[in-house]
Computed example of a mutant assay.
Amino acid sequence: MTTARVISVSSDGSHRFSKPTRESITLVAGLGVEGDAHFGATVQHLSRVRRDPTQPNLRQVHLIHRELFDEVTADLAPGQLGENVTTDGLDLLGLPRGTRLHLGDEAVIELTGLRNPCVQIDRFEPGLLKQVVGTDADGATVRKAGVMAVVVTGGVVRPGDPIEVRLPAEPFSALAPV
């Protein structure tokens, strides 16, 4: 059995598509990744701020499973799709809303939903949007560009940190775009 772990962490104080990798990131409860452009209790994503800047920030931490890099034709590296945490050995997309992930010794985040990628992903790599958003056999939209979370308990997160999964009480609710 594979042990889930963090393989990379990234942050950027400016609103850019990709984020540089770091030796560590600090998560702050209720706010997100310290020093990141999406840090805050209310929504920080620029298009969402324009719509309603008072919305709660359900996108404080963006996670992508490293396994996605194997599924797409683009040559991707951690942080290039804007994620803060790149994981390995964990089916992020299959987890229910409300799942808590314990990252390393202290940090705890709670999954709020799926990332809903936009046209910027095609500006980064033409054709990538079709590879990370598609449809299943029943015609339902499938989003594979990662999950979003809020910080429950702060702490430092580093590459190599183990990830412990704590599922919410049943009945489970599937992740939906946030």
Results as ranks from 00 to 15, higher is better:
137 A>L: 10
169 A>P: 12
59 R>S: 01
102 H>R: 15
5 R>W: 07
116 N>A: 12
64 I>G: 00
128 L>K: 10
57 N>M: 04
124 F>I: 07
47 S>Q: 14
101 L>W: 09
99 T>I: 07
167 L>T: 06
25 I>M: 10
94 G>T: 03
148 M>G: 01
119 V>P: 01
147 V>K: 05
8 S>A: 15
11 S>E: 11
27 L>N: 02
80 Q>P: 01
136 D>N: 14
152 V>C: 00
28 V>K: 13
135 T>F: 14
109 I>N: 02
90 L>G: 04
91 D>S: 11
94 G>V: 09
176 A>M: 13
136 D>Y: 08
51 R>P: 00
55 Q>T: 05
120 Q>Y: 14
32 G>A: 04
152 V>L: 05
32 G>V: 01
167 L>A: 06
40 G>K: 13
138 D>Y: 05
58 L>I: 01
174 A>P: 06
83 E>A: 02
113 G>P: 12
62 H>S: 06
119 V>F: 13
58 L>K: 10
145 A>Y: 05
163 I>V: 15
145 A>R: 09
126 P>M: 12
93 L>C: 03
166 R>K: 14
131 Q>E: 15
51 R>F: 10
117 P>K: 13
50 R>E: 13
23 E>L: 12
126 P>N: 13
28 V>I: 14
146 G>D: 02
141 T>L: 12
23 E>R: 13
143 R>V: 00
163 I>K: 07
15 H>N: 11
159 P>Q: 04
49 V>F: 10
130 K>Y: 00
61 V>S: 03
161 D>Y: 08
10 S>G: 05
29 A>D: 03
44 Q>K: 15
68 L>M: 09
2 T>S: 12
97 R>S: 07
12 D>W: 06
43 V>F: 06
13 G>Q: 10
99 T>F: 04
118 C>S: 08
52 D>N: 15
141 T>F: 07
146 G>T: 02
25 I>A: 03
87 T>P: 05
26 T>W: 06
61 V>P: 04
128 L>G: 03
53 P>Y: 01
171 P>L: 10
130 K>R: 13
61 V>C: 06
116 N>V: 00
9 V>I: 10
53 P>A: 06
128 L>V: 03
133 V>D: 01
144 K>W: 05
18 S>C: 05
48 R>E: 13
22 R>M: 13
117 P>M: 09
72 V>F: 06
66 R>A: 15
95 L>S: 02
157 V>S: 04
24 S>Q: 12
118 C>Y: 09
107 A>E: 05
169 A>E: 15
22 R>Q: 15
71 E>V: 12
176 A>V: 15
56 P>K: 11
91 D>K: 09
76 L>P: 01
157 V>A: 02
